[in-house]
Computed example of a mutant assay.
Amino acid sequence: MKRIVVQRAAPKDAYDIDDLLRTCFAQPAEAMLVKQLAMDGDLVLALIARDEASDAIAGLVALSKMHVAIGGDPAPAVALAPLAVMPDYRRSGVAAALVTAAIEQMRDAGALLMFVLGEPGYYGRFGFSSESAEGFDSPYAGPYFMALELQGGLPCGPRGLADHAPAFAALAETDP
């Protein structure tokens, strides 16, 4: 069994991260998204899973700033995207380790919400639900737009915006 360590990505990992994203996704849009998030200052956290034996990067999860409002007040929130795992490491727990570490770090940092656009059957195991995202004004609203309450509850008041960082708009334009 491969031993994987999850750690914060460092600037020296940029080339390997780009290679991972270009390998894992059919189009280069996700690789460009992560670069743009970093250049815009919207990348909150990038975690990599590294194979201890080979020092290869096995996976990545990125978290970016979101503009979210509850009751008219800003609420600290992040978007989880992208999540990518190299083909040789899939179905080995790498993605789960990355998501779990991201949740723990954002909970410790004081974020109230983490949003994801993904498969409910997968992300539901971490506590994400479409019900937690209901009522937020987002172009991604629907059954695949989910949120996780990180601090055990949300402030009172109507839910308002749930805007992703501007780099996501460019990603949406490149989708076929």
Score class of each variant (00 low, 15 high):
K2N: 15
A84S: 01
D175G: 11
R90G: 01
Y89D: 01
L112Q: 12
A56H: 09
P28A: 09
V78F: 03
F168I: 01
A167K: 00
D40C: 08
V68H: 02
A170S: 12
P11K: 15
Y123N: 06
A29M: 07
K35Q: 07
L161N: 09
M32D: 08
A165F: 08
F128T: 04
F136V: 04
L33D: 08
D55H: 10
V78K: 08
A38I: 05
P139V: 00
F145T: 07
G124L: 07
D73N: 09
A62H: 03
P11H: 03
Y123H: 06
R91D: 02
P139W: 07
G118H: 12
F136S: 11
G135Y: 06
R159L: 11
D55I: 00
A10L: 10
F126V: 13
E30C: 05
P82R: 00
L80P: 02
P87Q: 04
G93A: 09
Q27I: 12
V94R: 08
P87K: 09
A53P: 06
M114C: 13
D18H: 05
A31I: 04
V99S: 05
S129L: 11
L148R: 01
M39R: 06
A162Q: 12
M106I: 05
L80I: 12
Y89C: 06
R107A: 12
G110I: 09
A58W: 04
M66V: 02
A102H: 04
G118T: 10
L148V: 03
Q36N: 00
V34I: 03
